[in-house]
Each structure stands twice: as C-alpha cells, then as structure tokens.
Computed example of a mutant assay.
Amino acid sequence: MELYFLGTNAGVPSLERNVTSVALRLLEERRSVWLFDCGEGTQHQILRSPLKLSKLEYIFITHLHGDHLFGLPGLISSRAYQGGDTPLVIFGPRGLKRFVETSLELSESRIQYKLEIVEHDGGIVLEDDFFRVESALLEHRIPSYGYRVIEKDLPGKLDAEILERYGIRPGPLYGKLKKGESVMTPGGEMLHASEVLGKPKAGRIVTILGDTRSCQAAEVLAKDADVLVHEATFLHELADTAHEYHHSTARQAAETAKTAGVNELFLTHFSSRYKSEEQLERLQQEAEAVFVNSQLAREHVLYPIQRRGKDIS
C-alpha cells in the first residue's frame, strides 16, 4: 500500500505543481490503483509515473470544483487506449454523473469498458472482503467529502513447522485454516485453526480529505488513521482568508491530526502563492510545531504506508 501524489496545488496548476490528485497504489493487496480526485492534467501526470491506467479500479471524487475533477473526461476516454478493459467505478457527490455523462456524450467519446458512476451522500460507499471505504461531509463552499479507507484485519501467519509435522502441505487445507476453519489431517486427526494460526494483523487506515475548514467530521474520519492527507492551503497568518474561502491552514491540519491521533500527516493543496521551497518549508514547519510527524506531499514520490506493527490481542 503506497501513496503517490499526482497534484498538490490548489485552484490552478503552476510550473512546479499540478492540481489535486492522489493515487493509492494497492498492487500487493489487490493488484490495482485507486484514485482520489482527478484535476486537469492528471492523465499526463500518470504518464510520467509508475502507475498504469489499466490498473485503475476506483476513482473517488471529493467535490465538484474544477481543480478536483476537470481531468476526468480525458482520463476516462484515454484509459482504453492504455490497456484498460476492466470495469471502472467512480464515486462522488450528486451532480458527478451529469458532469461525466454530458462530457462524454457531447464529445462523442466511446468507452470500451464498463463505466459506473455512483453518487453518494456519505456513509459506507464501498465494502468487500478486504476493504471498507467510509465517507462524510466536510465544511466547504459546496458539498465536499472526505474518505476513510479501512483495510480489514489480515489473518495471522500459519505455523509451517506444525503443519509439516501433521503432513499438511500448501494447498486447499492451508486456505481453510487461514479462514479459521478446522480440518482433518492426513493422519485422521482434527486440527483447529487456533492451533496453527498466529494472531491477526490489524489493517491499515488511510484518510484522504477534500477541501475543508477544520471540522468535527474531519476528526472522525481521521480517528486513529495510519495516514491522513489534509489540505494546507495557507499559512496560519492567513487564517481569516482560509476561513472565508472554506479552507484550512497548515496549523489547522496539524491540529486535526493531533486530535484524531493519526500516525502520519501529509499536507497538500497548497496555494499557488507559495512558489519557492522556502515558502513550502514554512508550511511544514508550522504543522510540525503542532504535530511532529507532518510532511509536505511531493509529486511523483512513492510513500509506503507502514503497518504500526501491532497484532490484535
């Protein structure tokens, strides 16, 4: 599980940074990529990255401002030409379906794979055997949502030495034991999963927020997350401006991370007024003063999401 930022600017792109998009690469977990927001130029950023559109499984749109979704029509149209033939599902606020379908209809774009658009009002937007994605409404000028990606707990490791003594080799019986089932050994003994299965590993939690002021919903979505991705549009000296435009400062992002008890904070969605490295470093320093484990999101850098190393007792 890795984060890869394709755009970290707010509002408009600059020569240094593109507008908002972040990928969650899940190659080991499910051999796919999930995308959160798709600002203009996102498909160009993907071409310069190790990501492949053919692996794209889900797109989650936080809100309908252009710097978060104007890249969708082009990306959807190009995906098939880059080997994408599997279904693609896009989640987002109400109005997303009309935007996408109108764009594709008027441009007479031909989509050669199954495309599904799911509009939501928060809550659980996706769940399968391995992941659950929850969403909640934040505080912005238009409906803006955050997403909490929860990796479900993983089964513990099987004790190969014990299994070998019972004459059990890798195969179907391994799978049953992994699921917690009891099996009959080749010697005719009943073997219970609890005898050979280690403690389960706690799944990771990644919270990615859309544009927002500081609010309780952000803290709830980020509760005990391994990673929080939070906008930091302004330095706190512009807190009044941030509030007026329904955005957050770097300090406010750090306060949310600290209150929520997250492990690591990534700052993103920087105002284009912050052009130099020195100006960006001020954003990080402001956040670090409140929450030490804060860092700036850098485009075209892979950030592994580590497990905290805790088993479930």
Rank of each mutant, 00 (worst) to 15 (best):
L3M: 05
L3E: 01
L3A: 10
Y4P: 09
F5M: 05
L6A: 12
L6M: 12
T8L: 00
A10Y: 14
V22S: 11
V22E: 09
R30G: 02
F36G: 01
E40W: 06
T42L: 04
K52I: 02
T62I: 05
T62Q: 13
T62R: 11
G71I: 06
S77G: 08
D85G: 14
P87G: 08
V89R: 13
F91V: 00
P93H: 07
L96Y: 04
F99R: 09
E105W: 01
L106H: 08
S107E: 12
K114L: 14
I117M: 04
D128F: 03
D129V: 07
F131G: 05
R132A: 14
V133A: 14
R141E: 14
S144G: 07
Y145A: 00
V149F: 11
E151T: 12
E151R: 06
L154W: 11
L154H: 10
A160H: 05
E161W: 07
Y166I: 05
Y166K: 10
G167H: 03
P170T: 00
K178D: 00
G187E: 04
M190I: 13
L191Y: 00
E195V: 01
L197S: 05
K199Y: 02
K199E: 10
P200R: 04
R204I: 12
V206D: 08
T207N: 00
T212R: 14
R213Y: 01
S214M: 10
V220K: 08
A222S: 15
A225L: 03
L235T: 07
H236E: 13
E244Y: 07
Y245T: 11
Q252A: 11
Q252G: 05
N263A: 11
L267R: 10
F270I: 04
S271R: 09
S276H: 10
L283R: 06
E288T: 15
E288P: 13
V292Q: 15
N293W: 02
S294T: 09
V301T: 09
L302H: 11
L302E: 13
I312P: 04
